[in-house]
Design a protein around this nucleic acid. Sequence first.
DNA 1: TAGATTGTTAATCGATTAACAATC
DNA 2: TAGATTGTTAATCGATTAACAATC
Lengths: 213, 213
Amino acid sequence: MRWKKISDAVVRRLPLYLRVLEDAHRDGGKDLMSSQELGQRAGVSPALVRKDLAWFGEFGKQGVGYEVVFLKQELRRILNLDRVLPIAVVGVGKLGHALARYFQGRFEDDPDFNLRVAALFDADEKKFGVRVGELEVRPVSELAERARELGIKMAIIAVPAESAQQVADLCVKADIRGLLNFAPVKLVVPEGVRIANADVSLELQRLAYYLEG
Amino acid sequence: MRWKKISDAVVRRLPLYLRVLEDAHRDGGKDLMSSQELGQRAGVSPALVRKDLAWFGEFGKQGVGYEVVFLKQELRRILNLDRVLPIAVVGVGKLGHALARYFQGRFEDDPDFNLRVAALFDADEKKFGVRVGELEVRPVSELAERARELGIKMAIIAVPAESAQQVADLCVKADIRGLLNFAPVKLVVPEGVRIANADVSLELQRLAYYLEG
DNA sequence: TAGATTGTTAATCGATTAACAATC
DNA sequence: TAGATTGTTAATCGATTAACAATC
């Protein structure tokens, strides 16, 4: 499925579709959904929904639409979310702590939510051993070892700007393949490692543009 | 300047350029920067840097480049960041708390950083009066009144998914024009109100696609 | 002046939309 | 069967890149 290069524009809409289907499933009722409705709820045109899905297979039935449960499972499979995905949080300050707790809560609400914070790391020894739910903060020096043990392939970087690149380097060494970066810096990583930036200041600064006044 | 519709693709690069210039200025040395270097540091092609900036005026000198301090000020002006921009945080759970503290710290580090968290709101009366730095959590029912008093035009929504739309509606009533939404829901707002989504789960789910394994 | 780099136009590339035959 | 909606191709739209004259 992955031999043909699928554009990132497409990939970033898949989780959106997945959420719509999950919501529809949870709220019960609908077994079927048309590209029309799926698009409406995801904020995307029906044609684009069909085109996006068609990259991965033929999931619909003409004249009928898409089976909610089936398409949901397919999307989970495509997104590698059909099994538990352990994640590391590096940097357990206020933000890292909040994120760890958020995902713990999210899992309690919905056991099918397969993103799981599985390890916490910090550089500050005063934090070592601090508990967040079931987890204990470990020294960041143990990252590679523990990531290997736990099969961790993604990490959330919630450290200060000054140490973010260092942490990214450690993650790369630990064979982590996806980084969600909250620090306000452009990380440099080798090919094959994906970065998503969650830079709150940048987003607010962008919004500020539209205030005009 | 704003009569010609400038694409969002352009606008979201401006804060990136601004950051590069601020970093360069802080680290001293360079008074001038070429589109080449600016692009390099921002992760954008030099041609695109020039084209983006050209939408707003002629800021460079042929054969020389852009004056760092001058372009920085111009970008701040364009982004409405040349004056303090008060922001509300709605929902002071772990995440809201962390974000409020983050921006307080950011301001202490750099007094020129003009995004300022100026008010905190929550629906839970157990939180009323709780202090975060200089600020006290207020009932969300006071949002409109206080937003008006303080001139707040942007808000960070850090409430549970179930109440996010309600909060967004309140913000709209309070004449807030920009929303940074951390809740995993698609908010519906009238024309003229901008939304930026900071949906951590969605970003991680997108990253998961690239794990292939 | 000679060299460098901007601002801008034309060319290219990629993503979205429109349209419709296939078919459930 | 008739009506509806998919999967897919062609048309459109928009964003990025290439190229270069203008000029510091």
